[in-house]
Each structure stands twice: as C-alpha cells, then as structure tokens.
C-alpha cells in the first residue's frame, strides 16, 4: 500500500523545481509512521465499508419469505451483536495502532537532539535560526530548511503575529506556531531529497503563499551548507551590483532586511544574506530566477498581494542594479 501510494504520488507529482509536497514520500519518521498507519486504517475501514455495502445491497434485493419473519428477527439480533463486537474490535485495533505509532515517534526522537532550529512564523514567511551554544555559530535564514539525514532535529515553533502551522508532508507531522506559546516538534529525516512544506493554518490574505523549501542531505553536505551560511554576504564585485548594494543600503530595504556583513540589519523581512542560494522567492511564491527577482523587487504586491513588503519606487536602472546585487548573494 505504501508503495502504491508512492506510485500514485509520483504519477501526479513529478517533483518540479518546487520539490514535492506529497504525503506519500515517507521521508521522515512521522511520514513513515503515517504511511503505515494509513495502510492499516484503509484496510480496516475498507473492510467495514465493504460489509456495510454488501449488507445494504443484500437487504435491497433479497426478500425474506413471510413465514421466516420471526427467524429473520432472531438472525438480525445475532448479527447485531456480532457486528457490535467486530466494530469494537476494529476500533480497539485502530486506537492501539495509533498509540503505538505515537510512542514509536516519541521513542525514536530524543528530548534534546543534537540539532535545534528556531522557526518563527510571520505573515507570510518563515524566519529560521539554527541554534548553537556559541551564538557566533548561529545561522540565520528564511523560508528554507536544510536537514541532515538520520539526525533528529528539534524545531522550536513561535509566531510573531497570528497562528501558522508548520507542515512538511513528506517528513510528516504538523505543529502550530502560536503567538505567546512555544511548541516543539521533533523530526527525524530518513531520506534525502528536496521537499516542499506549506503553512497549514489559515493565517490571512496570503496563507496560500507561505511555503518552505526543505532539503534533506547527507551530513557532510549539511555541514558544508551551515559553514557557508555562517559566512557574511559576498561583497558585490561588478559596478552594477555595487550600485545595487548602494541602493539597498541607503533605501528602505536595509531597514527591513538583514544582510550580514553589511549595515543592513532589519528584522521585518526575511534575512537576505544568502538569498540567491535559496530555491524560491517570497516563501515559495516564485522559483529563484533572475526574472522572478526582477518581478519581486519591481512589484512585490504583484502575485503575492497584501504581503508586508511595500512597493519601493525604483527606476529601470536601479532595478537592474538591485537584482544584480541580490543575484550575487550566494
């Protein structure tokens, strides 16, 4: 069944550049548990559904003879008790299976895993901080997660405004980000790949455009990524990008965005330090291409109407410069 589901997922979701959002991937502990449970539930509930339909059809086409009415009544009584017993058994099995799945997850994920990530929800993007005892080693990024395969990771979930919900279907599990509360979800990625997650709690106008890119990779690739992420932003080299740098630092951009190694240190919008190494723009709204960067900076209110980034007036030259700079933020 799990494989069947995965097949279904593949036929429909030929993983595009967005990464797949299918539940059938089973790329994390919860996802695998879910797939197994789903198989079990489908089998049990399917069986009972079959009973209902067979019983119904039988009742509609078969007619007991009159002289057997009393017998029928008795048989129905026996059938009733049998049915009730079966249902109780079925429900107990499903409850126990859920309990076991839940405990399996709890048992396989330590309370204090080696990797701790703080995820903060904003209307409508994700702020991500990889925690480290040494704050100098803390990594800031946005709208993306890189996770080492086979390593449990503990996500601390908060929100700066309304309720959001963290959900990466392939990893499995879902947890709300609630202002004033701290929620924890511990994940254990089991397969490498590129996946997509999406905010699952309605959070206002652009709830539809609040995705997160998840890359599950081998440990050393992950370590390389972290190390690269700690580096300050690449200074612009060509004149165009330098003009863009000037613009970003002197105009509103810097008051909302952080670009480490530069004066820009705003916290209203996503960290842009390594923007160009990310897979998408605007929390999964556009793929990361030059054309889409143009589109975003020129008119942030275009496709993602209502988001918190205002239109900043730029002429064509300025636009080209800014994009050239942003493109260089590998």
């Amino acid at each position: 069944m799990t494989r069947g589901l995965r097949g279904l997922g593949l036929t429909f979701a030929l993983a595009g550049c967005h990464g797949t959002q299918s539940m059938t991937e089973g790329a994390g502990l919860q996802g695998v548990q879910f797939s197994n449970l789903f198989t079990l539930f489908s089998a049990v509930t399917g069986f009972f559904y079959l009973l209902v339909i067979v019983g119904l059809i039988g009742g509609l086409i078969l007619r007991p003879r009159d002289d057997r009415a009393a017998v029928g009544e008795k048989a129905a009584g026996v059938g009733f008790l049998t049915w009730l017993g079966g249902v109780l058994l079925g429900l107990t099995a499903l409850t126990v299976a859920s309990y076991v799945a839940d405990r399996n997850v709890a048992a396989a994920t330590p309370a204090h895993p080696p990797l701790e990530v703080q995820v903060t929800g904003n209307q409508w993007w994700w702020d991500v901080t990889y925690r480290n005892a040494d704050t100098g080693q803390e990594l800031h990024t946005a709208n993306e997660l890189h996770l080492p395969v086979g390593v449990p990771v503990r996500l601390t979930l908060n929100s700066n405004d309304v309720i959001h919900s963290f959900w990466v279907p392939a990893l499995g599990g879902k947890q709300d980000l609630i202002p004033g509360r701290t929620n924890i979800i511990t994940l254990l990625p089991t397969r490498t790949g590129i996946y997509r997650g999406q905010c699952a709690e309605f959070c206002g106008a652009q709830h539809a455009h609040m995705a997160i890119d998840v890359t599950i990779e081998p440990r050393d690739a992950f370590r390389r990524w972290w190390a690269a992420g700690l580096a300050p932003a690449v200074p612009p080299t060509n004149p165009l990008a330098q003009a863009g740098y000037q613009f970003v630092m002197t105009r509103q951009c810097a008051s909302c965005h952080t670009i480490s190694g530069t004066p820009a240190s705003g916290r209203v919008g996503p960290d842009l330090t390594h923007l160009a190494s990310r897979r998408s723009i605007g929390a999964g709204t556009f793929p990361m291409t030059r054309g889409h960067l143009f589109a975003w900076v020129a008119d942030p209110q275009g496709a993602k109407r209502g988001n918190q980034m205002p239109y900043v007036g730029l002429d064509a030259d300025q636009l080209r410069a800014v994009v050239a700079y942003l493109e260089g933020l590998k």
Partner: peptide, 18 residues
C-alpha cells in the same frame, strides 16, 4: 470512516487542515 482516520492523532497531524 474518514472521520475515524482523522481521530487518530498521528494520522491527523498529517491530515489536519488539508
């Protein structure tokens, strides 16, 4: 029956709000 599926916590944590 799909209600019974979402009544299970590990199932619902995947299926909730979908």
């Amino acid at each position: 029956l799909s209600g019974v599926m979402v009544a299970s916590v590990p199932m619902d944590l995947e299926l909730h709000d979908t």
